[in-house]
Design a protein around this nucleic acid. Sequence first.
DNA 1: CGGCTAATTGATAGCGTTCAAAGCAAGTGG
DNA 2: CCACTTGCTTTGAACGCTATCAATTAGCCG
Lengths: 213, 213
Amino acid sequence: MLASASVSYSPCGPSALTVQPMAVLRPRPVFFHASDTEIYAQGEKSGSLYRIEYGAVRIYRLLTDGRRQVVAFHMQGETFGFEAYGFRSFYAEAIVPTGLTPVEAEGSEPHRSDLMALALRSMIRAQEHLLVVGRQSALEKLAVFLLDLDHQQGDDGIIDLPMTRTDIGDYLGMTIETVSRSMSKLREKGIVRLKNTRCIEILRRDKLQAISE
Amino acid sequence: MLASASVSYSPCGPSALTVQPMAVLRPRPVFFHASDTEIYAQGEKSGSLYRIEYGAVRIYRLLTDGRRQVVAFHMQGETFGFEAYGFRSFYAEAIVPTGLTPVEAEGSEPHRSDLMALALRSMIRAQEHLLVVGRQSALEKLAVFLLDLDHQQGDDGIIDLPMTRTDIGDYLGMTIETVSRSMSKLREKGIVRLKNTRCIEILRRDKLQAISE
DNA sequence: CGGCTAATTGATAGCGTTCAAAGCAAGTGG
DNA sequence: CCACTTGCTTTGAACGCTATCAATTAGCCG
């Protein structure tokens, strides 16, 4: 499916709809994915990389009993879809209505070295995520998560959460209830304010950073 | 420091010393690192990659309060040291007496694409590790760890553990006591046998795999 | 407004951590 | 050769954080 113009849900903005100019400016076709639809599945033959024009994507893996680990969230402007063995090692799904443009893995020498840099940053990010998931408490994890997300969105202290609490829990290695309780704790301490469940304002960045270590 | 021939400690073998031919066959110098010595430190300017001729290496990161997350163990034949931002994001230390040869990041086109493949596999490995650390119980974690290590060492059911229990705990996101208790549980169930603390024999691979999911 | 899903809150239980002590293996020096 | 030291590992007991189960509440869309 192709979209010549696009729309994104932003629970933080004054309006619910924002037109994204990227789609019309790019020469490449933009493929549209509705919320909670699969972009690729674990085990599939590897395809191309994707650049996110608008929207958000979750990358995850499942255990046989249904336990899920979200290994990454990708937002507007990011490129994802690296694979190592000729097949997809993870699932990718759109979290909200999302527009994607395929990126060829082949190309000129500078293009390839860009890809190498991207792959390396993905690796470092995964390894840093390990530290959070493996060695931090629930409150610390959530603090790190909120600061990361705020940073991705321009460090303005207004965080738009496109993902559910379940997604956050599966990303941080904790249950939805613990995510919720930790969020309430940050609210009760006056560190954040919830404009609504999907939009959070950081009131005391210093305290949030102190908690995150 | 250079070594023209090398020796490795193998608590599993009949002899305590095994000569590794790699060092003398390779044209490149082999740099020697004693146990628990630093290969590079977090924050350092990025240097070359290293190939392990013999020995073992841990890659880790620290929190300010001393909590540590080991993100990877690397064994003989593996290449490590990928970095993304011009500086080292992690610490690397020799776990046992270790011989390393530097690998140039530059080179011919096929060489570079080999490096890309290596980097991508490291990324997948880190992301798979997330699933273990984030979503599995202590016993499951240890089962996965032992099966992984056995696979790295030839799937013969005899596992040589060059690292301490502290290393294992920091790798799996649990305390040394829980590692020890989980190991005892596997022993009591007749799934593994401890020839000594650093050498483990898998008696019931089927049960170990069932536990690991 | 009703019906649905997501999120919050509460009560309880269990797993893993923490603190503490004892066991074990290897190395040192008398 | 054996007592002693040292560092690592194992085991024990108690606590606490997070998961689990359950009940509301909030938010969204018709």
